[in-house]
Structure formats: structure tokens, C-alpha cells
Amino acid sequence: MTEILDIALLSFMIVLAIAVSRMQNLFMAAMMTGIFSFLSAIVFTLLDAVDVAFTEAAVGAGVSTVLLLGTLSLTTREEKIVKKNNALALLVVLITGSALIYGTLDMPNYGDPNAPVHQHVADRYIEKSGEEMGIPNIVTSVLASYRGYDTLGEVTVIFTAGIGVILLLGHIWRKEDEQ
């Protein structure tokens, strides 16, 4: 049954992706990406990655649609049509795509117990994290403690991006105030 669901959902996603790339009206495209995020959230749920699905729904379907609409209200609703055909861009996209597909060939099957991800440190986290960290949720203790420096780096990157956005938008707001 889940195979049928996977096929149906992934074909919905392909149809949507093609439609979004062909749309000229950016407002419609922003709406379609909202549907796309809902679909990918369902696929994540089917793959048992419930926490990723949670994030995808909150960020992809919720916040990023609103952010895209905010961008549209500051810029324009219609796409600028580029007339000249860009063969170099197509070539880069094709090479990147085939490299990504080539990369997936080496990946272990879904749910394979011999996959490296199940062999490396996962056992130790499952057995020891409770007594070492005192937190019942293993994901939280990995994120906040075992990989604490990594998380700190990520937060720094997001903080810097936020400062950049505020500086850019603040410039526009100041101009409006002067007028």
C-alpha cells in the first residue's frame, strides 16, 4: 500500500514542479510551492521522519509562503521573461542533476540494517545518551550536546542571515520614511 502512496504523491510533486517552473505569475507560483511543501511533508511522514515533516510543514508551507508573499509585495508579481536561450545554464543543470543521480546509486536501501548510519554511533546514542545527558529524547541530546558545536555554528549562520535581511529591508523602510 505505501508503494502506491509513494508513487501517487511523487507524481503529484513532479506535476507541481513542472507547473511552478512554467508559471509567469509569481503569486500563483508562491501558492503552488505551498502545496509542494505539504506534499513533501507527507512523503517525510511516510518515510518515518516525523520531526523533519514537522519542520517542513512549519517552515515550508507556513513561514516561507508568507515570506515569499512579503517579497512579492516589495517587488513585483510578474516574472521577467528572458528571451535568449541560455545553453550554458541548461548544461550546468544537466551535469549537476546527473551527478546527484549518480551519487544516489551508492546509497544503501531504505531501512537496510547494515547501512553505515545504523552501524556507526547510533547504538551508543541509544544506549548511553539517557544516562550521560539525562534527557529522554535522543534527538534532542544529539543536537544540543553531542553535536553542540555543530548546532552553535548553524545558529550563527542563521543569525548572520537574519542580520543581513534586516539590514537590506531596513534600507528600504528608511527610504519610505524619508519620502
Binding site: 505551498g34 505539504f38 511533508a41 511522514t45 516525523v50 515533516a53 514537522f54 510543514a57 512549519a58 508551507a61 507556513g62 509562503t65 508568507v66 508573499l69
Partner: peptide, 15 residues
């Protein structure tokens, strides 16, 4: 998870 989606969907439509 489904309950959270209801809330997000509502706020998104309002926006």
C-alpha cells in the same frame, strides 16, 4: 502532527 498542520494551514490562508 495533523493538528499542527491545521493551525499552520489556517494562519497561512489568513496571510
Amino acid at each position: 502532527l495533523a493538528l499542527i498542520y491545521v493551525l499552520i494551514n489556517f494562519i497561512g490562508t489568513l496571510a
